[in-house]
């Protein structure tokens, strides 16, 4: 399994758009799309928790080449809060209920588009990491917050 590449991010966007999947990049992968210079392994996607979106998601994942068994497909359709996929062309974490974000719709309204990729607002990425409160989140938060402040300052420039 190689690292997640730009081309694969484009493939996700194309397939998800084709099937009408509502999603946002979240976590460090989202921050990286916004320009955060750091490293990560997986792409994390915050996916809207609705039956229709779950069905669209399964179709899109299959098109991308994820090898879902019937049981796994059923888990995705049930929209379990956290699903980790390592059975496709790249690793993908699907999150239906991230810590620290109340509703998908709120995050969607605040979203940022980075070169066509829908990404959670940096405030939401930080809120999610703060709420998760893992050792690795605590370590990365100060730098992520510094990036958020830099990013916001740039948005405010005329």
């Amino acid at each position: 399994m190689g690292a997640f590449e730009y081309r694969q991010a484009e493939e996700v966007r194309t397939a998800f758009d084709a099937y009408g999947v509502r999603y946002l990049f979240i976590g460090k992968s989202g921050a990286i799309l916004l320009g955060f210079p750091d490293t990560t392994q997986d792409a994390d996607l915050f996916v809207e928790n609705s039956a229709e979106n779950g069905q669209a998601l399964v179709r899109a994942l299959k098109e991308l080449g994820f090898d879902l068994t019937l049981e796994q497909e059923s888990e995705v359709l049930r929209r379990k809060d956290f699903i980790q996929l390592k059975n496709g062309p790249f690793d993908l974490d699907l999150i239906f209920a991230p810590d620290g974000i109340e509703r998908f719709e709120d995050a969607w309204q605040r979203r940022v588009t980075a070169e066509g990729f829908p990404v959670c607002h940096p405030d939401d990425i930080i809120a999610s990491k703060r709420a998760a409160n893992r050792v690795k989140d605590r370590e990365s938060l100060p730098r992520l917050e510094a990036f958020r402040d830099y990013w916001k300052a740039r948005q405010e420039k005329p």
């Binding site: 490293t39 990560t40 792409a43």
Partner: peptide
């Protein structure tokens, strides 16, 4: 962005 991603996503 493609270059940023090449630096950022590392499989370990």
């Amino acid at each position: 962005l493609p270059l940023r991603m090449r630096y950022a996503f590392i499989h370990t």
